[in-house]
Nucleic acid binder design. Structure first.
Lengths: 196, 196
DNA sequence: GCGTTTACATTGCAACTGCAATGCAAAGGG
DNA sequence: CCCTTTGCATTGCAGTTGCAATGTAAACGC
């Protein structure tokens, strides 16, 4: 094998540049040449690693999701062993909100992707599964923590919707971060009872 | 004044075509020529009414918002005079969810716009004001109906977030309409007490 | 009837797009 | 030492984009 380079590293580098472009100028500005320029490489090299634009997009979406997963995993690990369900939930969901500039950038990309996949249902399947898994997990936590107060499944749908909606509002600059967090805590109060 | 035509009507016709294109192929497919073709007119005419693409987009966003307002107004009017706060809220919010194909189409456009405005903060200002107004109204209803149970402002933020988030999930096909409505009702149960 | 204004059509163009094709350099294996 | 494979650059091309410019037709004021 000649000319050994780390294929995955290169792809990550390019995806990184893609993210910067998408976050700054929107997904529609993401082109082979733009991304190449942002990455400081030739357009041909981008094409070498992603043969089509769609391939690039799909990979970038996977990157965003992996980042989120890593963020959540790290934050949850910092809680120590066996945290209370409510604490665990609050940590996870707060970590998924675009509260700082880094997560805002990721959030913009994710939002653009949402609009992108709304027209290409095939691509949306991956998101679909992820939501279902997350939903099950959240429902389990609610069942463990809130007992008979609510239907865990329905409450989980609502809670995830709160998170998603707050994310949208944060990205749009409709609320400051503190307001979103307060709303999240209020929601958890409603589910688990106040002051837990 | 020669050649009198209803300017607003023409613009609405074009905006209509824009909506169709955007809903079917995404906002990035919205071009002067595409919209013109969809409207069955010449590209020049589109250009006559909207000098730039951005102008077209901004107008289309206004159309979506007007449609939503009209839908809500009509649904609320059908409730008769002085409905209970919870009933009023449920009617309003359910009307804003993309539950049928017509509203799904509008929702896709709105979602694309969200991503669009996330990069052009100037355009987002209008949305900003609308959210603030809606928020105040919802908070008032919660205060009237739920009394001391919750902080109306925070609860209103959460409730609107639920609506927005459910909308996203519905557009992505993550949930069927019934699940979204159930989640909405669960949320209202949490705020107003069950069975009201 | 003339001129001005509005409505719309057509054409043109520079910029940009995704993508294929081609070319070359380097690094192994034989 | 060649030769195949891989990494990357360059070029070319057909298609599309937004937008300006130019043209024509119609309707009104005078």
């Amino acid at each position: 094998m000649p000319k050994r380079v780390d294929h995955r590293e290169r792809r990550a580098l390019i995806a990184d540049a893609l993210m910067r472009v998408a976050a700054e100028q929107g997904l529609e500005a993401v082109s082979l040449r733009h991304v190449a320029a942002a990455a400081g490489v030739s357009a041909g090299m981008v094409q070498h690693y992603f043969r089509t634009r769609d391939e690039m997009m799909t990979f970038a979406l996977a990157v965003v999701r992996e980042r989120n997963e890593a963020r959540v995993t790290r934050a949850v690990a910092a809680l120590g062993a066996t945290p209370a369900p409510r604490t665990l939930l609050r940590t996870m969901l707060a970590e998924l909100l675009p509260l700082d500039e880094e997560r805002r950038a990721d959030g913009r990309v994710a939002l653009a992707f949402l609009a992108y996949t709304a027209v290409r249902p095939a691509v949306a399947a991956a998101l679909h599964d992820e939501t279902a898994a997350l939903l099950g997990f959240v429902a389990g936590l609610i069942r463990a923590g809130a007992g008979e107060r609510v239907d865990p499944e329905r409450a989980a749908v609502g809670l995830l919707a709160v998170m998603e909606g707050l994310g949208i509002y944060l990205l749009g600059g409709h609320y400051p971060p503190a307001t979103a967090l307060a709303a999240l805590d209020t929601q958890l109060d409603l589910l688990f009872g106040p002051g837990a």
